[in-house]
Nucleic acid binder design. Sequence first.
DNA 1: CCTTTCGACGAAACCGCTTTTCAGCGAGGC
DNA 2: GCCTCGCTGAAAAGCGGTTTCGTCGAAAGG
Lengths: 382, 382
Amino acid sequence: MQHGILLMQKAGHVKMDDSTADTIQIRKTSVAVQVQEVENMNRISIRDIARIAHVSVTTVSRVINDYSDVSEETKQRVQKVICDCNYQPNNAARNLKLTHSNTVGLLMEGSPTPFVTGLSDIIEEKINEYGYSLAPHRVTNGVSGVDTAVQLVMEKRLQGLIVCGGYFILTLEQLHRLPVPTVFCTTTLNGIDDTAYSSVHVDDRKAARDAVNYLCSIGHRDIAIIGGVENDKGGVSGHRLRGYRDALEQNAIPFDQSLVCYCGLFTMQRGYDAANELLANSHRPTAIFCIADELAVGACKAIFDAGLSVPDDISVMGFDGTDIAQFYEPSICTVRQPKERIAKKTVEVLINLMKKKGQNCNAVFPTEIVTGKSCASPKYRP
Amino acid sequence: MQHGILLMQKAGHVKMDDSTADTIQIRKTSVAVQVQEVENMNRISIRDIARIAHVSVTTVSRVINDYSDVSEETKQRVQKVICDCNYQPNNAARNLKLTHSNTVGLLMEGSPTPFVTGLSDIIEEKINEYGYSLAPHRVTNGVSGVDTAVQLVMEKRLQGLIVCGGYFILTLEQLHRLPVPTVFCTTTLNGIDDTAYSSVHVDDRKAARDAVNYLCSIGHRDIAIIGGVENDKGGVSGHRLRGYRDALEQNAIPFDQSLVCYCGLFTMQRGYDAANELLANSHRPTAIFCIADELAVGACKAIFDAGLSVPDDISVMGFDGTDIAQFYEPSICTVRQPKERIAKKTVEVLINLMKKKGQNCNAVFPTEIVTGKSCASPKYRP
DNA sequence: CCTTTCGACGAAACCGCTTTTCAGCGAGGC
DNA sequence: GCCTCGCTGAAAAGCGGTTTCGTCGAAAGG
């Protein structure tokens, strides 16, 4: 049986609704007569293969799963039929029987930042190496979004979950509803005793402290922070804010609430807006610590637009160590997170948990400050 | 039955292999006694719900699928039980019975660029509105990667496929093996008659021509291009290169192969490297047209590092219209693709195809040049 | 020559859900 | 008294795999 898609030339109109009426060009084109093809397509089952290869269903299954007790000759024959028929086992059926999916979920908050994208790339690669596949899922609606994510885990019989990046608002109750091992990657669970679950991350508090200490060490005392969300306990936002305050304290600099901006999302636009607020502040900072590189880019832009210089007037520091920090002009001084190692460890921890041969573990990786031209000693002291 | 995860304090060692030995801190922590819990977790079936709610399996199914012939009272009762038991229907079983997955696949090439990330965000949103879910998948290994992607479609009984961005190397044979409607989004099929399948994109050739014409109009005649892959026919890379040559021809500028760089990936690093090559070229350009904004950022950096100015010495033009073009300093002149409309249309076309009430269609959206400070008239003529 | 072992293979049950069929039953209309 | 109608249920037939258990023939062992 041939499974190509039959194509048949046929002039046809393309319906245009309002929203597409102004596309500059819509060609009339062929209509694929693939109705029956599609309908029949997926119908090739293991039984068909068995019939064609003159063996039993059992034997086909054995060949597919590479069991030993099949003669080489039979194996070859079955494989040839499978190949000729372009047959793929139905995943749903397999999952149903196996009562699992061989898949782990990846929850990311909102649209992934370049850092999270990079992280998930490596996570996927590693997960695949262990023979699992990854089902990425974006969570967009806060708590209710997480609820649907929990639902997803159950529906799809996922076997593990990675919660990645951002400041997830995951309640303990939600965590406990999760029937599978979960590891938090570059984020921690808000306000929960952190020995009760697994996480892999950097010491955000220390990293932020280091960053701000660095700014102090080159002479800054009026340091602002562009953070994430207010009242964040366990997310990166809260930890980095605490690190910021630690450093101020260590350097005997009084904390000024007006130098703290919350931006919600880690986008350039938000960084731009936040920096503009800071520029309008009566207490004008000489340095701005941004808890993400994208925020730093936005902040720099705001400073330039105000006719000021980075770093001469204001120094800007980022976080994450993404490409943009390196390629921006001036290069942005940032805190590099070792994403390869974080991703690798995350997967290891999860796999061990899934195989029941691991225990909860909080792995913390060191960060390093990557110097850049965006930070310098303040030139003009007030 | 309570489905919380039991936690039990237990001192334990954390195994460290070589790769993790230098994490700066690994706390010993609790071990979750969740073995049985996990094992039993997914076992709640529709039969259990039926038993607990004192109704038949049929009725539970009717409630779940919102059928009409169930009394309000029964419905409420069943829903309460479902909720109390934290029950989720087994997706695999449902898909198996329904012989479909209510899911469409999204193929992206390699690690998604910010443009593709943005595009896929909207695509997911729209797909969800239609009641489908999205299974994103990154293709990393060229042709063989596409092969596994085709496999994926079949295994998971996906009902549609969106191939997004980049310069996919998809053979006609692979396309025909695909048993489901497929739409190409911001990319087209390499070298195939483009009336034989659906696509939604901009006119890359015209967009590039416009861009280069713009550069010509402000006085440039030595214009380089940083493109994607060599010998690309149907991908964005080939189209944009052709548009570049069109514009040269229109302006009576001889084509110079040494002004063409191929970078493979759309990353800042590749843009940086390519620009450095161009700077070392005996025929030094006064403007560089980059077929992605990330490449433009890298190119600018290379120019700065060479002690030159953008745009005084060399103008740089990008493509896509992503955030970074707007927030870079100088702002990067770019070609904006209307990603919202592209994404929306892509989903519409696919849904219509899936419902068999549409025909193949090639929708083309207009682009616009977003001016930026990175482009200006050449100051120093040779 | 008979029994045992073993490799190769098959029949059938089962995973959890949907859907269909058929039926029951009480209420209300004629 | 009969018929219709609304709500519900029991039972069965799959969907397409995996897996248990058993069969069968041939080689090995006694």
